[in-house]
Design a protein around this nucleic acid. Structure first.
Lengths: 195, 195
DNA sequence: CCATCAATCTTAACACCGTAAAGATTGTAG
DNA sequence: CTACAATCTTTACGGTGTTAAGATTGATGG
């Protein structure tokens, strides 16, 4: 399939992928550089030709998972015209991603070193949040929300979605209902015609 | 102060306390059984007389921190008559606790093994959530909210508070405003007279 | 009062971990 | 074909959790 540039396979890519599948199957705690190397049939120091240390491998794995995350988020709102519906779909997709892969939440938000400056909304350092903001602001504009309250509404929305995902995947919270229902509890999404 | 039952001090208690302070000062990642033992001036296997393994020590530490957490939460609403004000104060205290001790969020919700069944609200297995629910339900009743929507409102509220705490302490989110402001974005807390 | 016992702590050993240094292998460029 | 650089292996070191065995000591009962 892919080119095998040197005497062994494309190790860098294989390390990232088996590292991710190891976390999926065995959990974050039982991840180790040496186990990943062993599963790739290389010596335990071979990874050091591709990554400075284990944190760099984890960072690369994090980027890979974030890309999958972004893919899911993008697809969820693809072609959706109603901007209010879009933000609900996006929130549901956000939560669903971590329900499908319970290990990812802890992995992503524990090891990634993400820093988001909420005082400076033009900094798009974390892609999922950037997409979330774009989609939310589009809706805020469409319903004529005063621009001064954009940031508050955005943070409230994202915190709730993020909090639900956190509780679901890290603290054994179980709930049989539809998470989407909760978004309507926010004033911005509490449409008049639904009342 | 406390009894010193055997040839050395009250090691069990000292292990828990120095373990917690180690996490506070050096971070969750650099915590280890051997370092805690060393800081207590005992051999690295002495803790095994008090804990079956390192996870049991961590669990004991978690319980201790949860008690501190509950203490802060209780004090925050002590003597507050206005139930709507109480839930805001409680949310603020929840967030403030993790702002004051940034390492605690990851420590508490990563290692504690908390399980909360949101389909069965009478299970008070996690004290902070039990207090949150009691306070919230008291407010819901006072404003005449239909009982059917209690659970939705509660989860929305707690998820948002928990999500803010998560973003603040694990993902380098910074915000100079007052977190309390966000609670009013929920329909239940969006009082008519403020509009 | 002292022998016994159980709780507590220490020493030694093991497997696993991340990492560094040195050398072997091999694709590629001059 | 020779030199070089990228890649991988071997070896070694200190740190980690855990177990097993033995030492120390507070408490108990004859």
């Amino acid at each position: 399939m892919k080119e095998k540039p040197y005497h062994h396979g494309n190790l860098r890519k294989q390390l990232i992928e088996t590292g991710i599948s190891l976390i999926n199957e065995e959990g974050v705690k039982s991840f180790s550089l040496r186990r990943v190397a062993a599963q790739c049939n290389v010596s335990h120091t071979a990874p050091y030709s591709h990554f400075k240390n284990v944190d760099e491998l984890i960072a690369a794995m994090g980027e890979h998972v974030t890309e999958q995350f972004m893919e899911k988020l993008r697809i969820s709102i693809q072609g959706e015209e109603d901007s209010s519906e879009a933000i609900s779909l996006l929130g549901q997709a956000y939560i669903d991603f971590f329900i499908e892969n319970p290990q990812y939440f802890q992995f992503l938000f524990y090891h990634s070193g993400i820093t988001i400056d909420l005082d400076n909304y033009n900094s798009d350092n974390y892609p999922p949040f950037a997409l979330f903001r774009t989609t939310a602001y589009h809706m805020f504009r469409s319903i004529g929300l005063p621009e001064a309250s954009y940031s508050h509404q955005l943070i409230a929305l994202w915190s709730m979605v993020h909090g639900i995902a956190s509780l679901l995947t890290n603290n054994g919270v179980r709930y049989s209902g539809n998470w989407r229902d909760f978004f309507s509890i926010l004033t911005v999404l509490d449409k008049e015609d639904d009342k």
